[in-house]
Write a protein that binds this DNA or RNA. Structure first.
Lengths: 182, 182
DNA sequence: TTCACTATACCGTCCAGCCGGTACACAAAC
DNA sequence: GTTTGTGTACCGGCTGGACGGTATAGTGAA
């Protein structure tokens, strides 16, 4: 793997394992097996490193959404259903240390959140495009957000079986039934 | 207002307006109109200050939940409905800078999140006590979490009218209809 | 006078960013 | 084919500033 990506991975791992406060250039360098100078060669500042982490998170989300969208059956709420599946993907951001990018960004410099805002705007558009009921889609996706952030904050509610049931319930809400409104 | 609470308010405001990184003892003191020595008189360390912020958040949540619970009609999902109303309360944590306590805690010292975890455990119990369908309640409450965290991260989706519709939809899902299961 | 509270000065530590230097690969010049 | 030059990747020490925490002195009310 490239040193560039290696550094980002190391930084993510630090945030997950030791907390945002421990993310220093020195620590990231050591975790990546190089020196601080090496880190600063690839990222010209700490902000820049965090920008890279955020971009990684976004890329991963886009990739995951794209993959699941292809697999998802056509019809209403296709994007919303995609989001649900992506949220429960065991290799997705919800379960990976990439989420730490958010904490790092909001902590060190809230301006670095801008790409995230843009990402949400894109999602919003997609949802609006194929959701018969935008409130329904928004609620379910917000719930996915909730689950994601809970994990990010170290809050664990229920086991994997409960997660499975929750996912089914979410998908159920996105499957229009004839003769039943809610 | 007591100096104690004044300092906490000032700290919250800093986190909201300038980001967690700017929350220093000096800054909190200045914002509260006293000196650093004064802050350290009331809180024996920065961790202690953040503990105070977290406690404030929890107290506010408990208070809000209690109030809305009284007003909420009896029946299934009473606690879940309470959570929805509390989430959209304009003076509640979702719209107040108190949420910054979470960011400060997770950033400076993840151990400080312990009271939050306990709070979630309490909520979980309450929900389980009066929710006919725990998945339904969990999903709706997770959505409230999602909205809360989105605001915390500076993500604004939709205006107040959209919020209103979202709230109604959430409450709708918690109002059992005869002859319709989901 | 005592106590609750606040101000000021200071110390030790940590960290971001800078910079001079090294190693190596490749290439053009002679 | 040796020398000289150029660019990339990385190293590690240094420094200036910021921050948490301590010590101590001061102040006003009871």
């Amino acid at each position: 793997m490239s040193t560039f990506d290696n550094i980002i991975d190391a930084a993510m791992a630090i945030v997950r394992d030791q907390g945002v406060a421990k993310l220093t250039l020195d620590a990231a360098a050591k975790a990546a097996g190089i020196s601080k100078g090496g880190v600063l060669y690839h990222f010209k500042s700490k902000d820049d490193l965090i920008r890279g982490m955020v971009q990684r998170l976004i890329d991963q989300c886009d990739q995951l959404n794209h993959d699941y969208y292809q697999r998802e059956s056509e019809g209403p709420y296709r994007w919303a259903r995609t989001m649900v599946h992506a949220c429960f993907d065991p290799t997705g951001p919800a379960n990976d240390p990439v989420g730490g990018a958010l904490l790092a960004a909001i902590t060190v410099n809230p301006v670095l959140m801008a790409p995230i805002h843009a990402m949400y705007a894109r999602w919003q558009e997609r949802l609006a495009g194929d959701s018969p009921d935008m409130e329904r889609a928004g609620l379910v996706c917000s719930a996915m957000d909730g689950l994601f952030f809970q994990r990010l904050m170290g809050i664990r509610l229920g086991d994997s079986a409960a997660s499975e049931r929750l996912m089914r319930h979410a998908l159920d809400l996105l499957t229009p039934k004839e003769g039943a409104s809610s």
